[in-house]
Design a protein around this nucleic acid. Sequence first.
RNA 1: GGGCGGUUAGCUCAGUUGGUUAGAGCACAUGCUUGACAUGCAUGAGGCCACUGGUUCGAGUCCAGUACCGCCCACCA
Length: 905
Amino acid sequence: MTTEQHELAKAYRPADFEAATYERWLAADVFAPDGAGSRADASKPPFVVIQPPPNITGALHLGHALTSTIEDVMIRHARMRGHPTLWLPGLDHASIAAQYVLDQIIAKEGESRESLGRERYLERMWQFINATREVMLGQQRRIGASLDWGRLRFTMDEGSARAVRVAFTRLYDEGLAYRSEALINWCPGCRTSVSDLEVIPTEESGTLWTIRYHLIDEATGESSQTEWISVATTRPETILGDTAVAVPPDDDRYKALVGRLARIPFVERNVPIVADDVVDPAFGTGAVKVTPAHDKTDYEIGQRHGLAMITVLADDATINEQGDGYVGLDRYEARDRIVRDLDARGDLEATKPHPMLIGRCQRSNDVIEPRLKTQWFVRVAPLAALSLEATRSGRTTIVPSRFEKVWEHWLTSIHDWNVSRQLWWGHRIPAWYCPDGHVTVSAEAGGPSACGTCGRPAGELVQDPDIFDTWFSSGLWPFSTLGWPDETEDLRRYYPGSVMETGYDIIFFWVARMMMLGIHLAENIPFRTVYLHGLVKDPYGKRMSKTKGNVVDPLHAIDESGADALRFALVHGTSPGNDQKFRTEKLDDGRNFANKLWNATRFVLGARPSWIPADAARVAPDVSHLGPAERWIRSRTAAAIQAVDKGLAELQLAEVTRTLYDAIWSEYCDWGLELAKVRLADANVPAAAREATWWTLVESLDTYLRLLHPVMPFVTEELWAAIPHAAQDPDLLIVADWPAPGARDLAAEADVDAIIELVRAIRNARAEAGIVAASWLPVEVAVPARFGFAFEALAPAIARLTRARPLTIHANHAALQTAAPTGLAVIAGDFEARVMTAASGPSDGDRARLEKELAEAEGFLAAARARLANEGFTSKAPAAVVEGARAREAELAETVGRLKARLAG
RNA sequence: GGGCGGUUAGCUCAGUUGGUUAGAGCACAUGCUUGACAUGCAUGAGGCCACUGGUUCGAGUCCAGUACCGCCCACCA
């Protein structure tokens, strides 16, 4: 195989290659599990990630970028491990959200839903989404998402449409979907019903009015002027629909009134006084007006007591013909008028401010009105039970597990799902009504040929004008995208999915619905793992929103810092289920890291021993020529592989970036390259050894690029193309093999770590003493026998890093003291050194540093001794811990002794 | 009203099953154009781990409670 010699630019400029790199992946056809460039091992189980299809309403935000990145990390990792991977792209038609956006757009053009009419409105919608579609898909490509574009799906395409029809028909036939009049949440702004989940309880200051309902005199049948019952309400306009007054069952104040009648003002209706447990005697007057058609609790009271249910609001939240005297008034105008009129009648007893929760529409923010409507519902209890069984049995696990509690609670107290919406953009409910009122539900694309009950021809049937809740089609996503209801090869192979990844904010909207519908309709759980990420918040912990103006545009971030930097920033800050605060400085960290890696690679390429050809194929370093530094590098790389594997297995992705950032920057670059640099340039080192050093650098770099690829795919692909490859390597890193775990070399790690500590200590002494950084000074070091070999091997590098000239080695401390009675004293672990300054004896600054070190060491020593003096510790702590404490004590005592000796001398 | 999460350096966050001296990045201070990298290098300063009590030889870590912040759920009109 020929290695494509890729010239590396001097500076890291992501904009110069990211787009081209993505094109190379596309051209190689590596995203699809069965693509031409796939190196998947068909015998391995497929790895399927289910992506929440973003709403086709416009631009993607940071939350989308986070989702795409996390999923791409999972997919790329699985792909490199040789699994056939499926990550299916898609878009959601987002019926209510899309209509809301489009309504605002056409409003600016002076149009409205009504002025356009259904057909033209829908044409306009297609026009709109055709424009946003490419923009949104382009954004996903820019972030590097390796989605299988050949399988792109849209929730309004025919595949989804058919799945919706079949799913609903099946539910209907099984009695799990039904049409009924019930109290639903009505949004006057959107002119549609919405589900309970779409109602946002909002803390607001309202008013609590206490009003009088006069009792009916049992003798005369007339409204009494002396007897009344006082009720408290926050919504006086609903008086018009009152059909009872409810009191607590055993309340002495009201016992005698139960069974009597009260007169509702304005509409002059006589209603019963009933006793009901739900009434709290401590709230308000202890008596409550009952409006069954406009309040959830009242509705239940109404059902229990067989009360009339009178709807007084029209679809636009004005008072309808039931509200005698107030017809046509807006609900709030009617409220004001009614309060005034009550006051005028002398029936307004009290007015006081009242903090309360008001339900607002998630989309339009309009105040939701509960009201009676005939709607389609899905009976979810049996489906919820199946979903609970799936998580309880562990067939599906939720990460993080604390969300299982939330899941349990919601699914055990779930209400039937109102699936019909009085909107236009969406899947039409496949129900037809004949003039006799028969209902025919049909999965046929063209509708039923005749009424299923009486046989009237199709021409006489009228289809339900309503459409489905967006989440109904989203709920079918894991299987509708694989060809369901047909028993396709894809469905067999890729269902259930491996991981369903999304934000915790749509656990009920989407995750629970997929689970319920998947288990029932596709007859298996839709996914084995639910991974929930947190929300991306602004630097102050507030939700990002356009109205707040605190949004960070992912594309802008990519323009500024590169897609890899954005991905790094997002992954670095994420942990399962937890929100992250995002500040743009985080992008700098990612970009700087990529830049560091870029330059490290340039260094390694430039440090190639001249006799190795530039296009040489990769060879493993000759182990017989490895020095301590090389062994250390390899061992640290092996440690990184372990840590990264662990992080990925546990879905602790921030652990992965942390590990790699430290390993690459603080270990490989700061010490690995610095130590190797000297050896590579040292003419005294045999060629074979220098060769081994270089191949070690290449080998570790190669491993780090592979490990980092899932998180930072662009820069790693670009850099990988420039380094030597092994014969079995593919052309592209994206399909290269994931690194195999290697063995640690703890002896080498211990040696080099100790030497690093010495180098740091010498630098510190020099800096504290104010020695000019560039000056070279003689350094004398006492090297304990056990470090002898490693120290000698690394001596040239140590000399360079400490600016020691010459660097003289002594066999023991006594020899050092004799040879170098003066100079800056450096005591680091078992090493002791002297930096020979011109001055003789410890200077004041030197003395201060040593005294500080002594005080510190003495403090630790005292603590160690106290611990060991504690009989409880020595008898109860594990032997290894006690042993460690003893060793620690000895070491500290040694250090203290040497510091004291130095200060005395 | 019920439940969940958070509280560790100025800021953003790590901290494995309790065990030597609590870490990182950014910001800060000082000094460096050291032939990969100033998007950098070196060195340093900076923490009563929210509070109270308990368990333990030993607590940032486990338990109970408190405070504050955030979120979810819920039929006080």
